[in-house]
Amino acid sequence: MKTKLKGISYSKYGYLFSIPFVVAFLIFTLYPTIYTATLGFTDCRGVLNDDYHFLEHPFENFKEILKNDSFRVSLKNTIVIWIANFIPQISIALLLTAWFTSHSNEIRGKGFFKVVFYMPNIITAATVAILFHSLFNYPVGPVNDILVSTGLRDSSYYFFTSKTASRLIVAFIQFWTWYGNTMIVLISGVLGISPDIYEAAEIDGANGVQTFFRITIPNLKTVLLYTLITSLVGGLNMFDIPFLFLSGGPDRATLTTSVFIYNLAFSGNYIYNRAAAASMIMWLLIAFFSAILFYIMRDKDQIKIDKEIKRAKKEAKRAAKGGVNQWQW
């Protein structure tokens, strides 16, 4: 059984081991971030932006962004596309994880499947965008050819003028590139669970489904939280595919907030200050949603950890007494 001890009084090592991260973080992340955050309060725009000043009304850019119609549209799109991609993604990734880690229902060739399902994630977004664009092309394209030749439609369908179709295709691409990634993360989480627990479950006569819900999921919680948070963050910052696939069109249907921010800052009038303000607004939103997730997931987690600490203490005492080297895997 795995155990968790309370921190040992080696706290200086906590600082020591964090130094490389902190140094790199200060230089490469914190400085650029503060730089950006500051721009949100200035009149900085234009390519040659060396001379800019703080605004009289510091939150003017933020107000402008919140009033901006395209920003609101893009926020709605981002959430819609993220949900449409995330629900199937997490469901299928969990299903596959259950199948591939099942001790009772061995699927042959699962190693092959595991490896293959991640492969879409390897290809650059630009290539993916080109491939899908030609797949759904109008008036001639593979998908349209199939639709017409099987009689599902009389004539070709112009996918890229339909807002719904375009959003769905973007959501599908997101799903398709990321479900393998999510699956691998979840599987590696399952691999971190001690086989002893499964053995115990088997002895108790639990079947595959029961094992998955009673043992795998609860033990997977920390990794699941990781998946949820990174998907949320990645999803709300979704950029590559919406940008490269239809550059936000048709009629702003696939304009995500990141694409909008990019357009503000780089492709056009170089409105850095508003782009920075929009970034900060997005950051607050994401942080807010993440905090909710953390709260929901951490609550019980902490209780469990506390319990384990207690038990670990006892065990540690016992171990110290008996001098047994506990390798319990």
């Binding site: 914190l30 950006t36 990019y262 800052a265 970034s279 997005m282 950051w283 942080a287």
Partner: peptide, 19 residues
């Protein structure tokens, strides 16, 4: 660390390459 994870990267890149 978590807060940093959530910052949209498009604009902070300006600060990075300027530096």
């Amino acid at each position: 660390i978590m807060a940093v994870l959530m910052i949209p990267a498009q604009v902070t890149s300006i600060g990075f390459y300027s530096l």
